[in-house]
Simulated scan of single mutants.
Amino acid sequence: MIELAIIIPAYKQEYFEKALNSICSQTNKNFNLYVGDDCSPYSLKEICNQFADRINLNYHRFEKNLGGKDLVAQWERCVNLAGDEKWIWLFSDDDLADSNCVEKFYEALSITSSFYDVYRFNTSIIDADDIFLAAARVSPKLENPMSLAINILKWKRGNSMPDHIFKKQKYNELGGFVNFIQGQASDWATSINFSYPKGLYTIEGPRVEWRRSGKNISSNAAKNKSRLIFGHLEFISWINNKFNNADQYIYGVKLSEIHIESKNNLAMVLKSHYKGIPWHKFIEIALIISKAFNEPLLKSFMFCFKINYVVFRSKY
């Protein structure tokens, strides 16, 4: 029985053939590949046909585009294409995987007796021309979910959906991915959520190459900043509600540290990426922060004001 489903929510064509080729080049081909065409204007089926005789490839075209409105909902309807496989690898239409990723995944399952609900690969960053830009910080082999949350808030982890393989049973138990506005930080929250309470296991060796092309959603985040900031605020609120007092004794991380690092993270995001948001938006932001951190509204408003006074004077 094939245990792994590799799923690609597809729309763009520019790097799609390269992405498929990296999957088809796996040294272990014990997987089924599912492609969910998000009503793309490009001929993705013709590209898929080039690989149909090399792997078990299942292509499905959706009649309505969904990813442009709700990225996470598009992920979920693509996951629904899968069969009886026990494991899901949600890949992308422009990233690349080293040829021994599947092989090392099955080795990790054997070593750990399939104990963990989430396995992941370390990542590298490449540009539009496949040129190596940087290697993301190497994650520890095993990390508990509370420590993972802290390190994500500190920008010490580069977790994204294409570098995760997760147990379908866990996905079903939790009702799918964590969905925030514009899919902002949904991959981070999902990584934490699925790895709770057992922890996350990082596979040593092979990497997923995440593409910074200037054409994907992450690369174009600044263009949608007035909505994306509220997606990030949803993540900040979620992460502060995820853990409880018992967790800090189990995992050795204080809840106060998550609170502090959440504010530090939010301050950095606002300063670096969201200059130009109008006054009324910052009032909304202060309201959300007040609720997330259970603090007086005035204190939250002053927090917003102090981190970047110039924001209040700039035009949207």
Rank of each mutant, 00 (worst) to 15 (best):
D37E: 09
V178E: 10
Y15E: 09
A286H: 04
L233E: 03
R212D: 05
D38R: 03
L298K: 07
N100G: 09
A10Q: 00
F51Q: 02
T123V: 13
K104H: 14
L4H: 03
L57Y: 04
D117M: 00
Q182L: 14
L148R: 01
Y15F: 15
C48K: 02
P41I: 01
A286S: 15
V138K: 12
D187K: 02
G183Q: 04
G276K: 09
L298V: 09
V178L: 10
I277F: 08
R212A: 12
T27C: 02
K45S: 10
K168V: 07
P9V: 11
V35C: 09
S124H: 05
V253Y: 06
Y171Q: 08
I165T: 06
E63S: 14
L33A: 03
A221R: 11
D117T: 11
V311G: 06
S40N: 08
I229E: 01
V79Y: 05
K12G: 07
N264G: 13
S218N: 10
P41K: 00
R227D: 13
S262F: 04
I131R: 04
L20G: 04
A149D: 04
P140Q: 07
N172Y: 06
I277M: 14
L142G: 01
T190A: 04
W279M: 10
Y251N: 01
K104S: 13
I250F: 07
N100K: 13
K18C: 00
S237M: 04
H164F: 14
N220T: 10
F194N: 00
V310C: 02
G68K: 14
S160D: 12
I236C: 08
Y309T: 12
D117C: 03
W210M: 13
E257I: 11
I288L: 10
N21F: 11
R227W: 06
I150Y: 00
N30A: 08
Y106G: 13
L228E: 05
A73Y: 04
S92N: 12
R211N: 08
L228V: 15
V138W: 00
S191H: 05
S290K: 05
I277C: 10
D98S: 15
G183S: 11
V102H: 02
L255P: 01
A134M: 12
K170L: 08
F166N: 01
A135L: 03
E85T: 07
E204A: 15
P140N: 05
V253N: 07
W238Y: 15
T202C: 14
Y171N: 05
K271N: 12
Q74R: 11
G36C: 12
E209V: 00
S99V: 13
I55F: 02
H164D: 03
L200Q: 06
G83R: 11
A267G: 14
D70E: 13
A267T: 04
